[in-house]
C-alpha cells in the first residue's frame, strides 16, 4: 500500500460518517415534508450522535458483555470498510485491487449479522425476537442481492468494481440484456430498504411491537456506534447502486473538457447528487409511504416476487450477453 492509499483510507471513513449523517438529516427532513410537517434541521443526526455519546452506557446484567460491546464496533467497522471499496465518482476506490463485489456482499451481510449477534447477546427477549427476525429477513433478501451480483459478473466477466465503474453497463449490453439490467436494478432497489432496516422492512427493529428489537438494550456509546454504522451504510448502499447502475459522468454527458481539480470537484458533486437521488427514491419515499410488513409477508415478497424479478433479469442478461 502506498502512503496515498493510507491517506485515503483515513480520510474516507471521516468523510463517510459526515456524508452519512448529512444524508440521514436530508432523509428525515424530506420525509417530514412529504407528510406536510416541517421536520428537524439537517444537523439533527449530528446532535443525536453527540447526545448519545454523552449518555451513560448501560450493559445489562444478563448480557454477554464482551459480545454485547464488540458488536457495535464490528458493525461500524464493516460499514466503513464497505465505503473503502466503492469508487467515488472518478476517484478510485482506496482498497481497489484488494477485493471486489463478493467482499462487498459479505461486508453488507456482516453489519446485519453484527446487529443480530448483538441482539442475541443482550439477553432480553425483545432483542432475541428482533435478532431472529433479522436473520429470517437476511436469508430472504440475500438471494436477490446475490443474483444481482451474479448478473454483473456475467456481463463483465469480472467481479471487480473498478472494471464495472469504468464502463457504464448500459453501453455494453444489447436491448435484451438491457431489459435484464433494468429488472436487476428494480430488484436491488426493493432490497435496499431491507438491507438498511428501514420501513417497510424494519421488522427487526419494530419500535412499537418489540421495543426497538435488536437495539432494545443498547444505550449511550454503543447505540451511537450503531447509529453511525446505519448512517454510513445507508450512504454506501446508495453509492453502490449508483456505481453499478448510474455510472454516467457529467463530463461524458456534456462532453466537458475538464481537467485537474475542477474535474474532481464537478464529478464529486455530481456523484453526491446521484447518490442523493437514489437514496431519496429507494429509502425516503418508500419509508414514508409504506407501513411495516409482517415478517412472513416480507419473506414471501423477497423469496417469491423479488426473486422472480431478479431471476428473470438474470436470464435476460444471460441470453443477451
Amino acid at each position: 500500500m502506498t502512503p496515498n492509499i493510507l491517506a485515503y483510507a483515513f480520510a474516507f471513513p471521516v468523510l463517510g460518517i459526515f456524508l452519512g449523517l448529512v444524508y440521514k438529516g436530508i432523509d428525515r427532513r424530506v420525509s417530514a415534508r412529504l407528510t406536510s410537517r416541517i421536520g428537524p434541521p439537517i444537523r439533527q443526526p449530528f446532535w443525536d450522535v453527540g447526545k448519545l455519546l454523552l449518555k451513560e452506557t448501560v450493559v445489562p446484567e444478563n448480557a454477554i458483555s464482551w459480545l454485547f460491546n464488540a458488536m457495535p464496533l464490528i458493525a461500524l467497522a464493516s460499514s466503513m470498510t464497505l465505503l473503502l471499496y466503492i469508487p467515488f465518482g472518478v476517484l478510485k476506490a482506496p482498497l481497489e485491487g484488494y477485493g471486489d463485489l463478493i467482499v462487498v456482499l459479505y461486508l453488507l451481510t456482516l453489519q446485519s449479522l453484527a446487529m443480530a449477534i448483538g441482539g442475541f447477546a443482550s439477553g432480553s427477549p425483545f432483542s432475541s425476537v428482533g435478532a431472529q427476525r433479522e436473520m429470517v429477513l437476511m436469508m430472504s433478501y440475500e438471494m436477490p442481492l446475490a443474483t444481482v451480483i451474479v448478473g454483473f459478473a456475467l456481463i463483465y466477466r469480472s467481479f471487480s468494481l473498478t472494471t464495472i465503474a469504468s464502463t457504464p453497463v448500459w453501453s455494453i449490453v444489447g436491448p435484451i440484456a438491457g431489459l435484464g439490467v433494468i429488472m436487476l436494478f428494480i430488484a436491488l432497489l426493493i432490497v435496499t430498504p431491507a438491507e438498511l432496516a428501514k420501513l417497510p422492512f424494519d421488522i427487526a427493529e419494530a419500535e412499537t411491537e418489540i421495543a426497538e428489537g435488536m437495539l432494545a438494550e443498547y444505550s449511550g456509546r454503543n447505540l451511537a456506534l450503531f447509529y453511525l454504522s446505519d448512517a454510513v451504510r445507508g450512504f454506501a448502499m446508495a453509492a453502490l447502486e449508483v456505481v453499478l447502475f448510474i455510472p454516467f459522468t457529467l463530463s461524458s454527458i456534456f462532453n466537458l473538457n475538464l481537467t485537474g481539480a475542477s474535474l474532481y470537484t464537478v464529478e464529486a458533486l455530481w456523484f453526491l447528487f446521484k447518490v442523493l437521488v437514489v437514496y431519496l427514491l429507494a429509502v425516503t419515499l418508500v419509508r414514508t409511504s409504506f407501513a411495516r410488513f409482517r415478517i412472513e409477508q416480507a419473506s414471501r415478497i423477497f423469496w417469491v416476487y423479488v426473486n422472480i424479478i431478479a431471476l428473470v433479469g438474470l436470464a435476460l442478461v444471460w441470453m443477451g450477453v
Binding site: 410537517r37 421536520g39 446532535w47 412499537t208 437495539l215 432494545a216
Partner: peptide, 15 residues
Amino acid sequence: DAERFGIKLVGSPRH
C-alpha cells in the same frame, strides 16, 4: 410536529 425540536418517541427506555 415535535420532531422539529429533535423530540422523538422511542420504543425502548434504554434509548
